[in-house]
Simulated scan of single mutants.
Amino acid sequence: MKQRDNFFDNAKFILIAFVVFGHLLKTFIHDNEVIYALYKTIYTFHMPAFILVSGFFAKGFYQKGYLAKIAKKLILPYVIFQVIYTVFYYYLYSKPNFKMDLLDPHWSLWFLISLFCWNIMLLGFAKLKPMTGIAISLIIALLVGYVDSISNYLSLSRTFVFFPMFLIGYYLDRDQLEKLFTFRIKAAAFIIGAIVFAGFYIYPDINYKWLLGSKPYSELESASIISMFKRLGFYGLSLIMVFSFLALIPRGQYFFTKWGKQTLYVYLLHGFFVRIFRESDIHNYFTHAEQFIMLAGISLVITMILSSKVIASLAQPIIELKISRTRKLLQTIGVFLNRGQQSGKQSSTYR
């Protein structure tokens, strides 16, 4: 059990670092073909892998109180951060009018709504045989692309498009994952990643928005019968990349393993850094390959900071709606200050 926890915590930390890095790279995708290829390569697996892992851990959805628990964990933080980001964007972009819409998720907040919906959808799909459920979810995902009204609003498009990946994760078991951890599979995973990157570099006209799952076919191209086969092709690519990524994840305990438990904090908070980065002049500094390596390092630092106990303690009231960590942090600070005062008094006494 401990080994499994280490594996998934390692995977989640590395994935959230890729999420931060991918969002920072977005600024440069139209300026550099290598960056554009790297960006699309990352997007083939980082959110799909998160979704698959989320499905893997949704096996207890039938337990009493589970839905209420995830509603508190997902919907309440969504509402809070939807309000916070609305105010933040209003001042950041100096918008003329303040507009609040709780049903149109800001940027990365779509994942919270979709994750809640996926758990609800399991109530019906879990009763089906695995292949039947996956096939039906896939057919729905392919067909909704023809409905122009299904897009980012309420995160409907992504909810349907990514549900097959969530369902695959739900049906996945540990023994199946163990088959990934052979030397042959790991070697193949490296080769597959290189081939995918090279493919995106050689064919730069591939629209990255196919990987987002948020747009109907009419906004990606002129909708036709070919459109759903293109989406099906991207499904296959993402699935191969997700399992290639998981095959390369270390299973031991490392310095970053514990931070894998704080990915929700990173996911909700990193948007402030990314948006400020995009609006500032800092991004003008990044023009050469070695500087993009530095950007990867910055992404890692942001991820580590937002995964830290201090940030978790400060942000817990608005993310988990609890104050246990915050109270503990305040108690620690209080003890530290008292020791400082006592030390000061002793010093003055000896004088």
Rank of each mutant, 00 (worst) to 15 (best):
K309Y: 10
I298F: 03
M294N: 04
H270Y: 02
E279L: 14
A312S: 11
L300N: 10
D281N: 14
M294L: 15
I276K: 08
H283F: 11
L295Q: 08
S307V: 01
S299D: 05
N284K: 12
A296L: 15
V301D: 02
M294E: 12
P317Q: 11
G271Y: 00
Y267F: 08
T287W: 07
L295N: 07
A315P: 03
Q291C: 13
A296Y: 15
Q316D: 14
R275S: 10
E290A: 13
G271E: 03
H270F: 04
E279G: 03
L306N: 00
N284H: 11
T303N: 11
P317G: 06
I298A: 03
Y267T: 05
L269Y: 02
L306A: 05
S313E: 06
I302R: 01
M304I: 15
S308C: 13
A315F: 11
S313T: 06
H288R: 12
P317V: 06
Y285C: 03
G297P: 05
L269V: 12
I318V: 13
D281A: 14
S308F: 03
Y267A: 02
L269N: 11
L314A: 06
F273W: 11
T303K: 03
Q316A: 10
T303C: 11
D281H: 12
F286W: 08
L269E: 03
F286S: 06
F273H: 06
Y285H: 11
L269R: 08
A289G: 04
L269P: 03
I305M: 07
H270N: 07
G297Y: 08
L295D: 11
R278W: 08
I276V: 13
T303V: 09
N284C: 04
T303M: 07
F277M: 14
A296H: 05
I305Y: 00
V301Y: 02
I302W: 03
F272C: 09
L314S: 06
H283G: 05
